[in-house]
């Protein structure tokens, strides 16, 4: 066990898996000598060489498309989008080529696309997005979104070992803020949800950076209102852990779902639809959602703070739900 940041845990997982499996290779812009825009791949090229840690031109379709080819050739590529926003430039290769390959041809595409996501640092409209819903709508892609260092390492290793294309959402806000105990060696975290905190009055369902916002809100609701809030961290969006979601509804009968992404057709909308469909009889109040409104994420700190969900807003909506 070591105490690592979320970013160090991702690097650690990547290094572990590259040592354990010589099929694993890394591709991306500035990932080599420079170590990546966020330094996730720092030191990897020195250890594994230029074939296994490749600096690519600015060519997202080529990064993803050649990763598909390398996967078909028997390798296990882990490619990096410098910011998740740029995956739009390689969207077609991911959605139409990688995602549909197995269903259409029987060929598996074991690859990981690392996607540094999220806002909260004045990144503006093109460096703050949460693109998970684009890919949830595309059959054949798995999508995971860790909220802690331990899960970041374990989910990355599981993603590399998975025989399917996996979108690995790593939240930039957590990179250096989230710290925690991380087991040594290689281990896999399953693509299932985790109950982070047990409660009886209300469930907050979240993933990625919104898990810590939900925990802050839950602390305040205990301190100020003496209410026990359950927090469910989805960890995986595809597959979605339907059993865990339905189970938390059964325990608390009140649900608030929080997304940092734009509200329409977001992951949280899928969770809300599931509950409406399968757990309506367990509800004591309407399902509530908090998400970013459907605007590009603005640059100025005052504007950005106005659109991203935060603990204050979570507490506010939770109180409305509890009073229903």
């Amino acid at each position: 066990m070591a105490t690592l940041t979320y970013l160090q845990a991702i690097s650690d997982g990547l290094r572990e898996e590259m040592r354990a499996d010589d099929r694993v290779l890394v591709l991306g812009e500035d990932v080599g000598a420079f170590g990546g825009a966020f330094k996730v791949t720092d030191g990897l090229q020195a250890e594994f060489g230029e074939d296994r840690v490749q600096d690519t031109p600015i060519a997202e379709a080529a990064i993803i498309g050649t990763s598909v080819g390398a996967a078909l050739a028997g390798l296990r590529p882990v490619c990096e989008m410098q910011f998740s926003d740029f995956v739009a430039c390689g969207f077609d290769q991911l959605v139409n080529v990688a995602g549909k390959m197995h269903y259409r041809t029987g060929l598996a595409v074991p690859m990981v696309v690392r996607l540094p996501t999220g806002g909260g640092f004045a990144g503006g409209p093109f460096h703050s997005q949460n693109p998970e819903a684009w890919f949830m709508h595309a059959p054949g892609l798995k999508i995971v979104a860790p909220s802690t260092p331990e899960d970041a390492k374990g989910l990355l290793i599981a993603a590399i070992r998975d025989p399917n294309p996996v979108c690995f959402l790593e939240h930039k806000h957590l990179y250096r803020r989230a710290k925690g105990e991380v087991p040594d060696g290689g281990y896999e975290t399953p693509f299932t949800a985790r109950t982070v905190r047990e409660g009886d009055a209300l469930s907050i369902v979240a993933y990625g950076a919104m898990v810590s916002a939900a925990l802050d809100a839950a602390d305040r609701l205990w301190d100020e209102d003496r209410v026990l809030v359950e927090v469910l961290d989805l960890r995986s969006l595809v597959p979605l852990d339907e059993d865990a979601i339905l189970a938390t509804v059964t325990r608390t009968n009140r649900v608030l779902i929080v997304d940092e992404a734009n509200a329409t057709c977001a992951a949280g909308a899928q969770v809300a639809a599931l509950i409406a469909d399968r757990a309506f009889g367990d509800l004591d109040a309407p399902v509530r959602r908090l998400a970013a409104p459907d605007v590009p994420i603005p640059f100025s700190p005052s504007l950005e703070a106005a659109v991203l969900p935060d603990p204050d807003r979570i507490v506010e909506v939770a109180r409305e739900l509890l009073a229903y």
Partner: peptide, 9 residues
Amino acid sequence: VVAVGLAMG
């Protein structure tokens, strides 16, 4: 593009 990736492999 996929062919280029296969060749790389």
